[in-house]
Write a protein that binds this DNA or RNA. Structure first.
Length: 683
RNA sequence: GUGCCUGUAGCUCAGUUGGAUAGAGCGACAGCUUGCGGAGUUGUAGGUCGGGGGUUCGAGUCCCUCCAGGCAUACCA
């Protein structure tokens, strides 16, 4: 009917939906009747094992042996490449930039998601038949590096890491210290603001104590008046409003006394929820214990750090200028310490199977970035606003509605921003490498930023800017809340990795103690890293991952070890069977399952779907399709394993089932490999 | 304010260009090994698919609207 309408030209220029409606109207019969008529016709052709009409659907059953033999043959021939399209069978050439780690700074679990995604997307797009070029972009210069080196020179010159910690890790600790020093005032003020806003007991108590101090006349009265006002109004305290900015150091112990008293008190009963379910105060974000802990953390350096923060900030600015004018001493120090971090980065990349066709460095695109900023200013695309070079993108595009806002492209002191460098690199990618598309695998919070970069380059007449794609993903949080280096609760990538490995090792030592130690070590690595990767990939990109170390470390259920275990079992069966894939391939002509079980058909069906799943995952840049596929495949294999004896069954079923197991093993391995996950043969 | 994202079982999540009775895992409870590995497996319990409209033969899926939460929004990266 569709064909008739097409021939008559009735379906031209109308939507799919309208077309379907038109067809339905012409058919003029109920779906079930149509299905029955079609079923009868198809059945008459005699090419299928069974044809039936159910609920308006036509179910067609194939001849299992014929289809199975052809499918299994295809899988065994393709081996590890089963599921992949021929290399470079699509004309596109794509650069995938991911794993943008920093030197002089430790990586955390958030970076883990990026690495896993980047590796998997690269594998999958390549398997989809597209030429891929994985690249990374290392933050080897910028504010964090300057802060780290300032702290190193000022407080740790000549020191060396102790114990077996790497120099890169040690440098990361120095960066964390620099951050803590420079952020002390901001942290203290933010903490006070939170406590003042959320805790009325605190407000009245501190208020009372301040009044007492005022009467004793030991500190500047105006400052006390200011603090009293802010506390009673539950507003923010601003240091520049104080006459003596060190006055907070004087009050700090008083605050601590009050917090200690509150934490020591027995918990007040839960406030009764009123009938309408409303409570008058917002829920506090910190318990009394947490408040005290945060106070104690800040108190450790309140007295000795607070007065120096402004001078330190000035020193950091000066250090920045040393980089800008390429002070030889500073550059030498930078090169030496950078090498320490790079060694660490390489080992992380090795461990997570990230390989790159090119490494880009922030330090190498600063000059080109400045050049582009100059051009943009000369051509009137950029302008200087309040001393700051910016592009008013909406204005430039003539957009009425605020869409792309305004992007600063250089700091007012002439130092470069991330944007300065990205403008240069983005252009460079297309100019120096023969690519059709460039993908950024970066946190979704930067999506506006990448739109801005693309639009600015388009404004500058760089047409290929439209071929940039930001593959965003949501961030990783902890069950206790958003990761914040301020609170110091972000699990470091290396710590998480270490914990996964030792946990995996403990499990295999318990389950399989007779394996050689070296094998257990290697299997623990494959299982531990695999579980970590799967946890990072088995969630859609637009969902936040709540990273619960306990859950990620559990090897039960919907997780990589389940799939790896299915693979190990399949390997075991084939080992007992002592048949090679070649022998099996030779026996395919006479393959005979006998009466096929539902579990066998279900497994065959799943195996046959891998190529399609790969295509879809590649087109959508979504490894999630493959994590789901691999888990489903493992589950169907387990169903089969329990329902259908393989080695104990009689010929010719025995050989047929062995062939099916072989095809399953290959497909499991192949689909895990696309995710960057290893498939151990024993575990 | 504006833009983007999210809302499906107690918890964590799948759900294909709209298509058959909305599925897994975890947690809970009750089973399975005289068989190729129990990191397995069977069953039970658990659902106003955030609310309300609309389009359609048919909506978790598409459109509108409202609610709730998150993120972004000029010198962070």
């Amino acid at each position: 009917m569709t064909r008739e309408l097409e021939a008559a030209g009735d379906l031209e220029g109308i939507s799919k939906k309208e077309a379907r409606r038109t067809v339905n109207e012409r058919v003029g019969a109920r779906a079930q009747e149509v299905a029955e008529r079609i079923a009868a016709k198809v059945d008459a052709a005699g090419r299928f094992a069974r044809v039936e009409a159910v609920n308006g659907y036509v179910n067609i059953s194939y001849n299992a042996n014929t289809v199975a033999a052809s499918l299994i043959g295809e899988v065994l021939r393709a081996g590890d490449r089963y599921g992949a399209a021929p290399p470079n069978s699509k004309p596109e050439r794509v650069m995938i930039e991911h794993s943008q780690l920093n030197t002089h700074k430790a990586a955390h679990v958030g970076h883990l998601r990026n690495i896993c995604l980047g590796v998997a997307v690269t594998n999958i797009v390549r398997a989809g038949g597209v030429a891929t070029m994985p690249t990374t972009y290392i933050g080897d210069i910028g504010r964090h590096v300057v802060r780290c080196l300032w702290c190193y020179e000022t407080f740790h010159r000549g020191e060396e890491p102790t114990g077996d910690a790497s120099k890169g890790r040690w440098l990361g600790d120095i960066y964390a210290e620099a951050d803590a020093r420079l952020n002390l005032r901001a942290d203290v003020l933010a903490f006070l603001h939170t406590v003042i806003r959320e805790d009325e007991v605190f407000v009245t108590a501190v208020d009372r104590m301040l009044k007492f101090l005022w009467r004793t006349n030991t500190v500047d009265g105006e400052d006390i008046a200011y603090l009293l006002g802010r506390i009673s109004q539950q507003g923010e305290i601003k240091v520049d409003q104080l006459r003596d900015e060190n006055v907070l150091v004087t009050f700090w112990p008083i605050i601590g006394d009050q917090l200690r008293a509150e934490a020591a008190q027995p918990k007040p009963p839960e406030p009764p929820i009123s009938a309408d379910g409303e409570t008058d105060a917002p829920l506090p974000t910190m318990t009394p214990e947490e408040r005290l802990a945060e106070w104690e953390r800040l108190d450790a350096h309140m007295t000795d750090w607070w007065p120096h923060v402004p001078a330190w900030e000035q020193a950091v600015r000066e250090t920045f200028q040393r980089w800008e004018r390429k002070d030889p001493n500073f550059v030498a120090l930078w090169e030496e310490t950078r090498a320490w971090s790079v060694a660490d980065l390489r080992s992380i990349f090795d461990e997570f199977d990230a390989t790159f066709d090119a490494w880009f460095w922030e330090s190498e695109v600063e000059d080109e970035g400045r050049q582009i900023v100059r051009e943009l200013l000369e051509r009137g695309i950029a302008e200087v606003s309040d001393g700051l070079p910016v592009v008013k993108i909406d204005e430039q595009l003539g957009l009425e509605h605020e869409t792309y806002h305004t992007l600063p492209i250089l700091r007012s002191d002439g130092t470069t921003l991330y944007a300065t460098k990205d403008l240069a690199l983005t252009q460079q990618k297309f100019v120096e490498y023969d690519i059709d598309r460039a993908i950024w695998v970066v946190d979704v919070r930067q999506s506006l930023y990448f739109d801005q970069i693309s639009k600015i380059l388009e404004l500058a007449g760089f047409e290929k800017a439209a071929n940039n794609l930001h593959l965003g993903y949501e961030f990783v949080t902890l069950p206790t809340g958003v990761i914040s280096s301020r609170k110091g609760n972000a699990p470091m990538l290396e710590d998480v990795r270490d914990e996964m490995l030792s946990r995996a090792r403990a499990v295999i030592d318990e389950k399989n103690p007779e394996l050689p130690a070296a094998t257990r070590q290697e299997v623990a690595r494959q299982v531990g890293i695999g579980a970590l990767k799967y946890a990072m990939l088995a969630r859609d990109g637009n969902k936040v991952i709540v990273f619960d170390p306990e859950e990620a470390l559990s090897f039960d259920g919907h997780a990589a070890p389940y799939i790896q275990y299915a693979h190990a079992r399949a390997c075991r069966i084939l080992e007992h069977a002592s048949v090679s894939d070649i022998d099996l391939a030779a026996s395919l002509d006479t393959l005979d399952f006998g009466e096929t079980a539902a579990e066998e058909l279900s497994l065959l069906q799943q195996i046959s779907e891998l190529p399609g799943v790969v295509q879809r995952a590649a087109a959508e840049y979504r490894p999630l399709h493959l994590t789901n596929y691999a888990f489903d495949l493992a589950r169907r294999f387990n169903d089969f394993y329990h329902a259908c004896p393989v080695l104990q069954s009689a010929e010719p079923t025995r050989t047929a089932r062995i062939a099916l197991v072989a095809a399953t093993r290959t497909t499991l391995k192949s689909s895990l490999a696309l995710l960057g996950i290893a498939a151990p043969e024993v575990m």
